[in-house]
Nucleic acid binder design. Structure first.
Lengths: 244, 244
DNA sequence: CGAATAGTGTCTATGAGACAGTATCTT
DNA sequence: AAGATACTGTCTCATAGACACTATTCG
């Protein structure tokens, strides 16, 4: 029997049902740190545990739509949120109930309001990524993948602007990089570098209304430019240990 | 009803079945060009059309396992092949029969034998990527994503060595880059650069048995090193048009 | 021998990063 | 006044890329 014959005789309905879910790693910057949106599970399995927001896909709904819907159900926001596919997970046994394949999405948002009042407020919260409790299923691994992807994407895409508001200062943008990468950056060099990358940011011609909270002159305001890729890229300080 | 209650009351068996497949973008270098493994569909829909090798996942089989199995069924080889997840596709209607979510994988192999004799030989072939016929389903888009991913990965990972044999010369490695990127590279500068990236290649101490077919001295042989990331990266010649 | 290739030397332009310095603002 | 911050100037070092050159091997 060759592959074609095998496929023809193969009816997936003969097999145990496969469920498909989307899970969202939603990141924002709050209180000076990077945070991820978690929801507390109300039902078994893993009842009471924190998990990534997500759920089963619905008929006639594309995957990115499903991810946006799940996110909107928790945050009330679908606007101003950048969303992109992360990876898929389908190991047998990752959900004890049945075979579940999860398509994960990565979402970046500027400082969002608290998870929306429509749902039980105690059930969803922004957790600092360095103090995340043990998560349900394999969500801890998904979160790790999402964080590493986000850190990498800051290097060669203008994604950092998705964490900022419509307009921002170079210092605020530097704060995004420092928060996501977890390393301090040199203010002067960063400033010059951002302005030297074509299409990364464009000036609004305005400045902040006042100086910084602890002094300093008013800063010029910028908005996101039209570049889709940064060239040259902003490379993270070398991490010798992660190369091998 | 909050999210937890919704999930609890939601039985995916109540909805039309969702099938999960893996599809593999398998690339190799043959006859001086980059080629992709395609199989001809024997059954409806899209009977007679070329498509990526793939099929339904089986119970108790992890996703990478399923991809490796599908590839092995066509090539007879599972060894020496690098395989990694690419992306997932689940738009309603992408398969006319039912809701199908496809997890795609990207595979890189050194010059492989022809698709194996066990299956009907006329049903599988390595196609030059610049002369691919119209593919079934949305496989054309999946292939495009795979090619772009492969091109990008050559920049910052030692993936090029997966296209070469166990040992190779710097010239052969340059050939991989030129073929996948589709641009000529400067031989001298490439040579120096490869040797300057820690852990990319390591010398075997041997040389080729003879010089090149058209003359030139014997070349030193190398094998893949232990680096997982290239630092500094090998950047493609700037492509201004792709940045915006 | 003539041509092609492997490998090295050298020069230039560019960018990263260290450091310094000035102007402006808050407390 | 003191300190913090925005921004700019300048220097050094590493790398990319252009070009040149030698040595080796094939036809």
């Amino acid at each position: 029997m060759n592959e074609s014959e095998f496929l023809a005789g193969y009816d997936p309905r003969d097999y145990p049902a496969v469920a498909v879910t989307v899970d969202v790693v939603a990141l924002t910057i709050r209180g000076g740190g990077l945070r991820v949106l978690l929801v507390r599970r109300g039902e078994q399995p893993h009842a009471g545990r924190w998990s990534l927001p997500g759920g089963f896909i619905r008929p006639d709904e594309d995957l990115p739509q499903a991810a946006a819907r799940e996110l909107a159900e928790e945050t009330g926001l679908s606007d101003r949120v950048h969303i992109e596919q992360l990876a898929s997970y389908g190991a047998p046994g990752r959900d004890p109930r049945m075979r579940v394949v999860s398509i994960s999405y990565l979402a970046f948002a500027p400082d969002l309001p608290d998870p929306r009042a429509g749902t039980d407020a105690s059930d969803a919260a922004w957790h600092p990524v360095d103090k995340v409790p043990e998560l349900a299923f394999d969500h801890g691994r998904i979160l790790d993948h999402g964080l590493e992807r986000a850190r990498g994407k800051l290097e060669y895409t203008p994604l950092a602007t998705a964490f900022a508001g419509d307009t921002f200062t170079i210092s605020e943008l530097r704060g995004v990089y420092e928060t996501v990468w977890g390393v301090p950056l040199h203010a002067g060099n960063f400033h010059r570098k951002i302005l030297s990358v074509p299409g990364f940011v464009e000036s609004t011609g305005e400045t902040t209304e006042s100086g910084g909270a602890r002094g300093g002159p008013r800063a010029k305001l910028y908005r996101a430019g039209d570049a889709r890729l940064l060239h040259p890229a902003l490379l993270r300080p070398a991490r010798e240990e992660t190369i091998r």
